[in-house]
């Protein structure tokens, strides 16, 4: 399974970015290879509109099985993400990636 996090940094100790469209990074944890990698998403800062669809495109290309985020995607991003067979878990804000991952493993995160 590939797990994607919206994150304010690039490590396990980084805090989850509560925003989907405007998240600073998308961090991917590949459970098979146990590898953690980060994709810089800060280019959306310059976008007045369309951050949600732009980030959705990026997430699609990373093709994770699970997305862990905070507030949850907005309307446009939700429409886009519906086309992906991906589990979306929310309310992970204020947690580090490591804590969020543990909560996910324990089934303690809310699915949308």
């Amino acid at each position: 399974m590939k797990i994607a996090f919206t994150s304010s940094g690039t490590t396990w100790e980084s805090i989850i970015d509560p925003r989907f469209g405007r998240t600073e990074y998308i961090v991917i944890f590949d459970e098979e290879s146990q590898e953690l990698s980060a994709v810089d998403n800060s280019s959306v800062k310059n976008e007045a509109h369309g951050a949600g669809t732009a980030t959705s495109q990026r997430v699609f290309e990373l093709s994770p099985d699970v997305l862990i985020t905070g507030n949850g995607p907005g309307d446009n991003a939700s429409t886009a993400l519906k086309h992906l067979k991906m589990k979306i878990l929310v309310n992970a804000h204020d947690l580090t990636l490591r804590q969020a991952y543990e909560k996910y493993k324990n089934g303690e995160l809310k699915e949308v």
């Binding site: 976008e47 509109h49 369309g50 951050a51 949600g52 669809t53 732009a54 959705s56 495109q57 699609f60 446009n76 429409t79 886009a80 086309h83 992906l84």
Partner: peptide, 14 residues
């Protein structure tokens, strides 16, 4: 404006 995205074989217009 990211009004078009491409998800695999599908084009999505916003």
């Amino acid at each position: 404006f990211h009004a078009i995205i491409q998800l695999g074989p599908s084009i999505l217009v916003f």
